[in-house]
Design a protein around this nucleic acid. Structure first.
Length: 594
RNA sequence: GGGGUGGUAGUUCAGCACGGUUAGAACGCUUGCCUGUCACGCAAGAGGCCGCGGGUUCAAGUCCCGUCCACCCCGCCA
């Protein structure tokens, strides 16, 4: 070993001993006479002192040191002289008096300082990711990521789960996200797809009798990126046999409890809250509500019926609703600020935004249409108080919820409502299907292998083909044995009890409008497998990156993925994707058309 | 595909509304001084295709059009 230990592992008991340390020059303070260097490794910092009284030669050499040089030091550990301790760092009572200095590696002047005093553009950080990752905050993020992963892996191992790998070169499937494709050289004109998830394979593992499977696995989706979406990401993928929804919920709650306890020493309160999909949508306007604050959306249709406001009455007449939310502290808004708010609502799809200020009485352009009594009742319903503003959206139910859901998050941001802690929730009772207006057919809300709820099974099996094309058919009422887990407004994961009957599975494909031939081509192997004794089974997948992002308080997935991509799915470090040789293209029988 | 914000020394930013001398600051870098600093201090210095292309103008970092890149959001995506 080139060193005895990590910088921050040096303890006071070793004062007087000779110690060898290695690391990077974090900061140097050259006084001419004395030179101080903060030596950094992944554990922390140790102050090195170069004094001509210890070694003239070493002191001389230390003048050459620059930021991020990699050095090795042999020196004597000393307690710092009284009054010169640094309480800011864990090793602040100690320092190493350098006898010998070896420069192991030099560094050019840095493209940016790595001392976290200013925010550096992400492009530059990613281009020099090796420097960015040296920053203590990033080191911390990846320590948390490692610990969380290990806690989860150990937990699952302790609970009888087998980690089994599934193929990366697999088959493209319709439905769901766009695939990343890989051309097959040995089979000209054909392509593998990188997995969007190991869905079919993990189900087949259940049919293979493994009973409890997990995998911490990379998944790929070729869709547009967001702060919480990368083209490749890691899932904690699980599947279990002979279980019901509650069994999965129990395992995951215990797993997360264990993970938060071990990594952050936080005791989550389990069981987590359960909300039905309908409740979530109606109260929070989202199927991934942020439950760290209230500001619930309320239906005030019945109340505003008593008003004279035409727009509301007409909307209700047409079967729509009027829903309201509190603009916390918004009564102080100027006319201009209100205009901006209205514009924002419109950008969320609202036709308009009606408002009533509660400020020494009420203030609103539509005040004359409401009795004072009525406004008070509405205010009470949405818990609006003096200083707040009542915000109304009148529209069809789905749109009203959606718009108010977005406004709710926006209000929380602008009024700086405190959002702390980790608020988990399960969203259950999802619809099995969702009408796709573009394709004029039903699509799976979760995925096509999701089991309907028992009580809806007959409806599904007996439904006639005409219903497949009718957005109002009973199909839209069928509920799925699907569940999402939500944390602080992020969808952390989702899963379902799967279909283990070939007839049910085939019926689903029919509803989805997949012709038999197509089904056979795409999923034939899977349906065939279902016919040889498939156990009832179900599972879930959690986004590891998102989990770690929330655990570390990072605001982007990019801060918890070592080598992430930009919004255009570009890697500034390796410069992927890139053009390739014509020779390679020829081997693959691919001609470009760009 | 659409909307928004940004792009000026190595870095983070100011300058742009109202076009006009030699484009500034801080940090970093270089050199010198400094024996208890810890974001050390002091002094001097180097460092700019004002993202790129076009246009308007006597004159463009500043105005207009286009384009590229980064970030945030919608669509898309579990």
């Amino acid at each position: 070993m080139l060193r005895d230990k990590y910088c921050a592992e040096v303890k006071e008991e070793e004062v007087g001993k000779e110690i060898k340390l290695c690391g990077w020059v974090f900061r140097r303070r050259d006084h001419g006479g004395l030179i101080f260097v903060d030596l950094r490794d992944r554990s922390g910092i140790m102050q090195i002192v170069f004094s001509p009284e210890i070694s003239k030669e070493t002191h001389e050499k230390a003048h050459e040191l620059r930021t991020e040089y990699v050095i090795s030091i042999i020196g004597t550990l000393r307690r710092r002289p009284e009054g010169t301790e640094n309480p800011e760092i864990p090793t602040g009572n100690l320092e190493l008096y350098a006898k010998e200095l070896e420069i192991l590696s030099q560094s050019k002047p840095l493209p940016f300082q790595i001392d976290e005093t200013e925010e550096i553009s992400e492009l530059l950080r990613l281009k020099h990711r090796y420097l960015d990752l040296r920053r203590p905050q990033m080191q911390q993020n990846f320590l948390v990521r490692h610990r969380a992963t290990m806690a989860i892996r150990n937990f699952l191992n302790d609970n009888g789960f087998l980690e089994i790998e599934t193929p990366m070169l697999t088959k493209s499937t319709p439905e769901g996200a766009r695939d990343f494709l890989v051309p097959s050289r040995l089979n000209p004109g054909t392509f593998y797809a990188l997995p969007q998830s190991p869905q079919l394979f993990k189900q087949i593992l259940m049919m293979s009798g493994f009973d409890r499977y997990f995998q911490i696995v990379r998944c790929f989706r070729d869709e547009d990126l967001r702060a919480d979406r990368q083209p490749e990401f890691t899932q904690i993928d699980m599947e279990m046999s002979f279980i019901e929804i509650q069994d999965i919920i129990d395992v995951i709650e215990e797993m997360l409890f264990n993970c938060f306890k071990k990594v952050l020493d936080i005791e989550l309160s389990i069981p987590f809250k359960k909300l039905t999909y309908d409740e979530a949508i109606n109260k929070y306007g989202s199927d991934k509500p942020d439950l760290r604050f209230g500001l619930e959306i309320e239906d005030v249709t019945a109340l505003v019926k008593r008003s004279q406001f035409k727009i509301f009455l007409e909307t209700i007449e047409k079967g729509g609703v009027v829903k309201a939310i509190t603009g916390k502290g918004f009564a102080s808004f100027s006319r201009g600020e209100i205009d901006k708010l209205v514009q924002k609502a419109q950008s969320f799809g609202a036709k308009g935004l009606a408002w009533i200020k509660i400020k020494n009485g009420f203030e609103s352009p539509i005040l004359k249409f409401f009795s004072e009594e009525l406004i008070k009742e509405i205010a009470q319903k949405i818990k609006a108080e003096e200083g707040d503003m009542i915000l109304f959206i009148a529209d069809e139910l789905k749109k009203a919820n959606e718009i108010l859901g977005k406004l709710r998050l926006d209000i929380a941001n602008t009024s700086k409502i405190e959002r702390k802690g980790f608020q988990f929730a399960w969203i259950i009772d999802f619809p099995l299907f969702e009408w796709d207006d573009e394709e004029k057919r039903f699509v799976s809300m979760h995925h096509p292998f999701t089991s309907p709820k028992e009580e809806d099974l007959d409806t599904l099996l007996n439904i006639s083909p005409e219903a497949f094309k009718n957005p109002l058919s009973p199909l839209k009422e069928i509920k799925a044995k699907a569940y999402d887990i939500v944390l602080n407004g992020y969808e952390l994961g989702g899963g379902s009890i799967r279909i283990h009957r070939a007839d049910v599975q085939e019926k689903i494909f029919k509803v989805l409008g997949l012709v038999e031939e197509e089904t056979k081509k795409r999923f034939g192997f899977f349906i065939e497998a279902l016919k040889y004794g498939a156990p009832p089974h179900g599972g879930i997948a959690l986004g590891l990156d998102r989990l770690v992002m929330l655990m570390t308080g990072a605001d982007s997935l990019r801060d918890v993925i070592a080598f992430p991509k930009t919004q255009k799915a570009y890697c500034p470090l390796s410069e992927a994707p890139s053009e390739i040789d014509t020779k390679q293209l020829k081997e693959l029988h691919i001609k470009l058309d760009v």
